[in-house]
Nucleic acid binder design. Structure first.
Lengths: 228, 228
DNA sequence: CGCCAGGTTGAGAGCAATCAAGCGCGGTGG
DNA sequence: CCACCGCGCTTGATTGCTCTCAACCTGGCG
């Protein structure tokens, strides 16, 4: 844990400078230590309670963070896409299960290596901390959504959110099942299906090939979120 | 801004050693820069969207982190007690409102000072990161609670949680109103009141002076959470 | 061609929200 | 000292949104 410190502190300013453009570029030295792996839809990446030996970066595809409930139900805590990190928990164990919702490619890094890299680079440390607080902010916002919004409002919000992730394109694929969406929004499959049908017949969205969505009327969707 | 850095980097190993007992002892150099302030019940400490100039540590009392919804409702995202931090967000703005649920005492620190201190102390940085991930873990767990548990189960869980905070004592004060509890658990005041009454008549708890709770039958409460 | 997982649609029930009224206690002022 | 007031809490009656249970559909694949 002391070795890497020496090496990274040597060029702290250089790394900080690069960080302006891509803070995570500071993780470049990890390339050699990282393993590229492909996972199929439904495959588990980390299990809740597992030792946090490795953390991951999503290269492509889509990942869900879930918590499993005693009675067999699930809570989808977050959907991750390309660029997102899994398992930078600063703890000895993962507190969630991560599974691919679609065929995905990941980079796997030893947590110890990442941590020592972070320890030697305050700018990187701050960026990683920012990623976590950002996750916390999103979690808080979703609590509002779940506790104070109707099924229609939640799904309208969700579709707009997915739209933003697709670089603003009006047509995009949902890389997860209705069950995933339901468990993410605190609903059941049937309710998700019903609301999507309602939005479809109202002409607000189009649904093709099950998971291909087109946002026809963004204004109507915005209005349906119950915000402003 | 430079003063603390020099002082802390000088004795990094000493601080790391102390950190075993109290990692936040590394914040000691801030004592001089910190201001002690008292806030009354209901008073706002930070407002959502405010510039993150200051962060706070709860010395005594109780604080709620809330998000305000357009229609006037609220979501209580977290309750904080002595020792907890407010506003270590690594961001320019606070993404929640913080208010005292009871008369409280806080220490206020300039964020810049704290950040530079963190930048010079990897062990402290990791500890702060750990605090944030811990908050995220709690948020995820509460999503499970809100989405998959009944009103009875949520309140049973809440009472046990409050019991743990009281050093395991069976009798303790709830430092917040029914409205706070409701907004924390995704319920309404009336439901909280009804369930507390049910637990009272069932002999599971005692309620005295409105907010003084005694856990009479912990086993029954555990069972009522719907876990194991 | 048949299977199966994922999705849709329908009927009905239930839990918590809503609406409404009343209670209890602490504080304040006459 | 007592009457009043107001906030927080309790309790009751009713509504309604979503869940549950159940049947059926659809598309991909061996």
């Amino acid at each position: 844990m002391m070795g890497p410190n020496i090496e990274t502190s040597r060029s702290a300013h250089v790394i900080a400078a690069r960080a302006v453009h891509d803070p995570l570029a500071a993780l470049d030295p990890l390339k050699a230590a990282g393993a590229r792996l492909s996972v199929k839809r439904g495959e588990e990446i980390v299990g809740e309670g597992n030792a946090a030996d490795y953390c991951y970066k999503v290269v492509s595809g889509s990942v869900r963070l879930v918590k499993l409930v005693a009675d067999g139900r699930r809570q989808v805590c977050e959907f991750l896409v390309a660029g997102d990190f899994i398992g930078l928990t600063a703890d000895a164990h993962h507190y969630f299960t991560a599974e691919a919702t679609a065929d995905s490619v990941l980079m796997r890094y030893p947590c110890r290596r990442v941590e020592s890299l972070i320890a030697g680079d305050p700018a990187l440390a701050q960026h990683v901390h920012k990623l976590t607080t950002s996750g916390l902010r999103r979690a808080y916002e979703r609590m509002v959504l779940i506790c104070h919004k109707s099924a229609q409002e939640r799904i309208a919000w969700f579709l707009l959110e997915m739209g933003k992730r697709s670089a603003g394109s009006d047509t995009f694929m949902l890389p997860m099942t209705r069950a995933d969406i339901a468990d993410y929004l605190g609903l059941v499959i049937e309710t998700v299906s019903r609301v999507l049908t309602q939005l479809k017949v109202a002409g607000t969205i189009q649904v093709r090939n099950i998971n291909r969505i087109t946002l026809v009327d963004r204004d109507a969707l915005e209005a349906a979120t119950g915000e402003g």
